[in-house]
Design a protein around this nucleic acid. Structure first.
Length: 646
RNA sequence: GCCAUUGUAGCUCAGGGGUAGAGCACUUCCUUGGUAAGGAAGAGGUCAUGAGUUCAAAUCUCAUCAAUGGCUCCA
């Protein structure tokens, strides 16, 4: 007999070889029906795997993330089986579960699959799922595994097997499909009641663009049809918050083929939002001891040879522009740091001048691959809220912390709560991607790790994500569709000061090398505004929004009074306008609501008599009657609360 | 850059080898209306661009450009 400990601490005795499913059955049949897999001593495995020793067992259902993962991974196998039956001879890459569903990378050979095939695949999957196919685990020797896939002619699986150790290889069979797989899987296909093949995309085998491109089929499954419908509806809702859609509707920005791909044109509304963000940060930076600088949009090629950008990115940049007579070459600047280094060098620096903080909203141009461009989040010309802090090695930590405080201040002012702090370090295996000595890198990485530790923020570490000149701390947020984007970034750099031979005179009267901190709290104005649009679905905070209030006269008779109200608001620095169209009030309200104007001031006979305004808040409705000064105070208070970041 | 899909009025979209369609937006007129669409009339398009097939191309073919979903990349 063995002891099985359940999550509530209770212990039950079973014969050795009991399965998690048996355990579930002993509790209730209903529970057993919902079990997808089980966590045994912290490891997720098949509910049908025998347990031979005392163990902690947690039964996993659709309510557990791991349970969902099991279901989706099994669904990937089901989709593969359906595809194999419909298109015999296809070969399979990998088919994992992902955050929302699963995918399978498939080599369809000559067949040109398109989304017209989805329905057919879905129907086949449902048909197979109804057969209640069991997922059978089988341990196989390396040679048997290779023999199976050699016979099948699946070179992708053979490549995967080659990298596995003999004795560690398992197959899972379900219906007519056998896959090389670690598991775990569902007991059988019966929980899969609703399926959707979502999209298809090319995906390089093993993520290597030099290798063959397979077709990646994305899908998702649910135990209930209703849940699938809800999921699809949620996706539709998310699309409504897409910044590209809202950017058009609210007239924030646009693109023109005549200007060029990835080169955003900011419309007046968008420019107003962006300018206010810039003003906000400028004030914060002024208080934090930054000096503004301004540098040109191009720089001599030699500047980038010095910085190392030329070697690293020269071939993948917009190519240099040349002077007609001398033939001198200039790059559109892809970064502001080389220019700022030259500013540092413009005069001798004493340790008393440090930290020197040079800030610039610098527009940079990068040649991004055409397939990568995406609304305002990935563009070819964008403005960084850049600054470079030159300091002594001893000042690095305090400066780094001060920058983090600025990032937090901004996130708080804009109510960004959902962000990930990522520490991006060197690739542990391949160091050829980086410039600078190991010693400098170690110093920089250590500094960031220490600051992160002391900050108490939850951080994740990603190896291989560092910039080529130094490690960084990135602030990541998700967009409406769950895609992750990097916004703010703070980078510690010992390398560029060396390349540019930056120096300061210390108190010992000797020359020393400063350390550079690159930082951009917003990251890029374009990307930040994009994410802000999606997070607020276009309802910008009151202090940012282009129009804070709109005055809606009930009829032309109250136009004069409306003008009086407007004048009062303008004198109080409130951005407002009158909707003087010959439309009914209901219509004016509807249009203002759709334009996300925070406050609607309805004025008619009543208001004119009492010298008041009727206030309606966007998305909330009627707030009642206010005196003008009262309304101004309402707005001022809301802004003050939002910007009170201390 | 690669794979797939798409490109018709300012926007959202229907249509489809034989004279270009709708709703909204826009303009004018009527209406002066109290918390999410008042009414009428009008104007607006080389059907992304270029070539080819055809008596005839917005429609079929090819190329180019751009957009969308991914992959790779991201200083």
């Amino acid at each position: 007999m063995i002891n099985i400990t359940l999550p509530d601490g209770s212990v039950r005795q079973f014969e050795s070889g009991v399965t998690a499913m048996d355990v579930a059955m002993s509790i209730s049949e209903g529970l057993a029906r919902n079990v997808l897999s089980a966590k045994v001593n912290g490891k997720v495995m098949d509910a049908m795997r025998p347990i031979n020793a005392d163990s902690d067992v947690q039964l996993l259902t659709w309510n557990d993330d791991e349970g969902k993962a099991t279901m989706w991974h099994s669904s990937a196998h089901l989709m593969a089986e359906a595809v194999e039956q419909l298109y015999p001879g296809v070969k399979f890459g990998i088919g994992p579960d992902i955050e929302n569903g699963f995918y399978y990378d498939i080599d369809f050979g000559d067949y040109n699959i398109s989304d017209a095939d989805f329905q057919k695949i879905e129907n086949k999957m449902l048909e197979l799922a109804r057969e209640k196919q069991t997922y059978n685990r089988e341990e196989v020797s390396k040679s048997d595994a290779k023999q199976y896939f050699t016979k099948k002619g699946d070179e992708y699986k053979l490549e995967l097997i080659d990298e596995l150790e003999d004795g560690q290889i398992t197959f899972y069979k379900s219906g007519s499909f056998t896959d090389l797989c670690r598991g775990p899987h569902l007991p059988d296909t019966s929980p899969i009641k609703a399926v959707k093949v979502l999209s298809l995309a090319g995906a390089y085998w093993r993520g290597d663009e030099k290798r063959k491109q397979l077709t990646r089929l994305y899908g998702i499954t649910f135990p209930k049809k209703k849940e699938l419908d809800e999921y699809l509806e949620k996706l539709e809702e998310a699309k409504k918050r897409d910044h590209r859609k809202l950017g058009k509707e609210l007239e924030l920005f646009t693109f023109s083929q005549n200007v060029g791909q990835g080169l955003p044109l900011w419309l007046p509304n968008g420019a107003m939002v962006r300018e206010r963000l810039e003003q906000f940060l400028k004030k914060v930076q002024k208080d934090a001891g930054y000096y503004p600088v301004i540098t040109p949009h191009i720089g001599n090629v030699n500047l980038y040879k010095t910085s190392g950008h030329y070697d690293k990115y020269g071939a993948d940049s917009f190519q240099p522009i040349k002077t007609p007579i001398e033939g001198e070459e200039f790059f559109l600047k892809p970064m502001n740091c080389p220019h700022h280094c030259e500013i540092y060098k413009s005069r001798p620096v004493s340790y008393k001048d440090l930290p020197l903080r040079l800030a610039e909203f610098g527009t940079v141009y990068r040649y991004e691959q055409s397939g990568e461009l995406h609304g305002l989040t990935r563009v070819r010309g964008f403005t960084q809220d850049d600054a470079h802090i030159f300091c002594t090695p001893g000042q690095v930590k305090d400066e780094f912390k001060a920058v983090m405080a600025i990032v937090m201040k901004i996130f708080k002012a804009l109510d960004f709560k959902d962000f990930i702090v990522q520490i991006s370090l060197r690739d542990q295996e391949d160091r050829s991607k980086y410039i600078g000595s190991d010693e400098n890198w170690d110093k920089a990485e250590r500094a960031i790790m220490e600051v992160a530790e002391e900050s108490g923020l939850d951080t994740i570490i990603e190896y291989g994500e560092a910039a080529f000149y130094g490690p960084k701390m990135d602030f990541m947020v998700k967009d409406a569709l769950g895609r992750k984007w990097q916004l703010g970034t703070i980078q510690v750099d010992y390398n560029l000061p060396e390349r540019f031979q930056l120096e300061y005179t210390g108190s010992d009267n000797e020359k020393h090398r400063p350390v550079m901190i690159h930082r951009a709290p917003f990251g890029s104005m374009e990307r930040f505004v994009a994410v802000l649009i999606e997070h607020t679905s276009g309802k910008f905070p009151l202090w940012l929004t282009p129009e804070q209030a709109i005055i809606l006269p009930i009829s032309e008779k109250y136009q004069k009074y409306a003008e009086k109200v407007l004048k009062f608001l303008n004198n109080s620095e409130i951005r407002a306008r009158i909707d003087d169209r010959s439309e009914k009030t209901g219509r004016k309200i509807r249009d203002a609501e759709l334009k996300r104007i925070p406050f609607m001031l309805i004025v008619g006979e009543k208001e004119e008599e009492n010298n008041t305004v009727s206030v309606r808040k966007q998305g909330e409705g009627d707030l009642g009657s206010f005196e003008m000064q009262q309304f101004v105070e309402l707005i001022e208070k809301e802004i003050e609360t939002a910007l009170d970041t201390n």
